[in-house]
Amino acid sequence: MKKKEWYILKIINGEEKYIINKIKEKLLKYIKYIFIPTKKYIRVKNGKKKIYKEKIIPGYMFIKIYLNKYILLILKKIKGILGFLNERNNKLPLKINKNELKNIIKNKYNNSYKIGDNVIINSGIFNNIKGKIEKIKKNNIILSIKLLGRNTKIELNINNINKY
């Protein structure tokens, strides 16, 4: 068997578990990895912390697989799979290398928030307070919030905010 390569599948958002199960059921010996990039965040409600996952790139799934025309046909027949990124007529889709994969995920994760975005704090003493992003650091964000009638800047971890 040839080397397994990375590809990006276009899928129907919300069908991820079904698609992963079907791929594993039909093609287990041909795949090495399947994943959907997500980030975790914590939300506090009524004093209880709950961890949520959010898809970084909704509608796409990353798969490391040995791919030929036969396997391509099997994948395309699975309900919820729309096709491949870099798909070409009557040919195998273009593979992506590991560095491209890392860059796609890194750039999408880092660009999920931008300066000026309105967000809501989801934990801690400022829970449910709305603010505006002033500055973005590696894993932290500086927000401007209204506190006692004044604009106040606070620094929070990126996991402690959500867009609204």
Rank of each mutant, 00 (worst) to 15 (best):
N160W: 06
G59W: 01
K106I: 13
G124M: 07
P58D: 06
I105R: 00
K98F: 10
I20M: 05
N46T: 14
K2F: 09
K153S: 05
N68S: 09
G149M: 00
L72C: 04
L67E: 06
F62K: 02
I125T: 12
K138Y: 13
T152M: 08
Y52D: 02
L92R: 05
I161D: 14
I145N: 10
I42E: 06
N68K: 03
R88Q: 12
L101R: 07
I20T: 14
G14S: 14
I96S: 07
D117W: 03
K10V: 07
Y30V: 03
I20K: 05
K135C: 02
Y52C: 04
L147H: 07
K48Q: 02
N68R: 00
L94Y: 03
K32T: 13
N90D: 12
I31C: 09
N128Y: 13
N103G: 05
N128I: 11
K49D: 11
F35S: 09
K137R: 12
L82N: 14
K26G: 08
N86C: 07
L72P: 00
K153R: 04
K39F: 10
L75R: 05
K2Y: 14
I12Q: 11
I136G: 10
S112L: 11
G14E: 14
N122Q: 00
N157Y: 15
N97Y: 05
Y41Q: 07
L85S: 07
I81A: 01
G47D: 12
M61N: 02
I23T: 10
G131C: 10
K95L: 14
L28W: 00
